[in-house]
Design a protein around this nucleic acid. Structure first.
Lengths: 211, 211
DNA sequence: CGACTAAACGGACCGCGGTCCGCTTCTATT
DNA sequence: AATAGAAGCGGACCGCGGTCCGTTTAGTCG
């Protein structure tokens, strides 16, 4: 009896039929192509279904909604980012000090979020809260705060540090206020230092930009 | 010559025709009634137009979009809150210390945001950034930070303090994590103290909740 | 007061997200 | 290999947000 593929394993909730799984992949690939070539707005459910050679209903059965599809696309493209944090080279990955890792995290998160801005917007509700990458980021920041010996409600502090890195805020800063990624990252670093409470021991970085 | 009503005054951009202004009021009133009686989802543009006795096109000419309409509704209902901050009784209004005003601000902002959650969601993009109340809140927090003698990029710090008070985060905390308004407010107070840097002089409040 | 123009109006129309249901295909079982 | 039933499938259909354009009306000026 082959144990690798038969019994439900108790964590996969339902098991997807082979053709269903195939269609999921076809749809994700088609969606990615469409995004690449014509932008997020071109991904209408009908256009996508036509391109993937399936019916419209299939799109919804696989992904719940258009937003769910976008979230799936995001998940896929952010998984390598997660890997870089968990096991990539420092300072993002393990090996650097917690403070440096936190800073690297902030910068890369800002860049990633802005890069995927259109997709994140299109993922709407599903993309702004409670989908995999956000939960992962919260866990990671919380962990780093712990490493830094911060006291207090670490869960809340992690949320508070993550909140200004969400798209609406970042886009406001970039598009309306005209700030650069560098400037935003520097300000965020300053925020981090205040939250972790290392005000006095400002090291080599010379402090945050004052605009 | 009556100066109160004729020349454009140079700040009102276009001047709205009398019937147009009347229809705006009729629509806002009808929308408020509909929200009150049947909830935000019942405010479809057609239902609203029918109820207000105007054509569907008029809704869009007056408010740009359904989201714009919701934002207008929000603006109206938040104007009294703004007044309470600018000239109401302490600690929300002037008279209390800046730190107390900031705390009062946070609590009332949390309550207000949760109270209007459905409307804010429906206002979507228009309601989450760059509409009057948000800009007002940012200005106010920034001012209070200044009063407290905080150094650094006050604009960014204000944004960072406001970000965790936006609906997606608040709803996550209330609905998923099951936290109370009190607990959230307490955590936010702690965040404020970290940002303003008054860690050592913890006064009578005994610190934030640790969950 | 009558005429002229810009603004406002209404509702038919369009495209998209989402649902529904009768038909097809997969897979487990014997 | 045959079969039963669950899971998946497709596309017609629906309701809503948003646009468009021919018609009406408010305000202005001679």
């Amino acid at each position: 009896m082959d144990p690798s593929r038969s019994l439900p394993m108790a964590d996969e909730p339902a098991r997807e039929r082979a053709d269903a799984a195939r269609n999921r992949e076809i749809l994700l690939a088609a969606a990615a192509e469409l995004v690449e070539s014509d932008g997020v707005d071109a991904v209408t459910t009908e256009a996508l279904a036509r391109r993937a050679g399936v019916g419209k209903g299939t799109v919804f059965r696989r992904f719940e909604s258009r937003e769910g599809l976008m979230a799936a696309l995001l998940d896929r493209s952010e998984s390598e980012w997660q890997a870089a944090i968990l096991s990539g080279p420092p300072p993002l990955g393990p090996g650097a000090s917690a403070r440096d890792r936190l800073r690297a995290f902030g910068r890369s998160r800002i860049e990633l979020t802005l890069r995927h801005a259109a997709l994140i917007r299109a993922a709407g509700h599903a993309g702004t809260r409670a989908y995999a990458p956000v939960a992962f980021a919260a866990m990671h920041v919380r962990y780093l705060l712990g490493e830094l010996g911060v006291s207090g409600d670490l869960g809340y502090l992690a949320t508070a540090l993550l909140a200004p890195l969400e798209i609406p805020i970042l886009e406001q800063q970039v598009e309306v206020e005209g700030r650069s990624v560098e400037a935003i990252a520097a300000s965020w670093d300053d925020l981090v230092d205040r939250v972790i409470g290392s005000r006095s021991l400002r090291g080599s970085d010379g402090g945050a930009a004052r605009r």
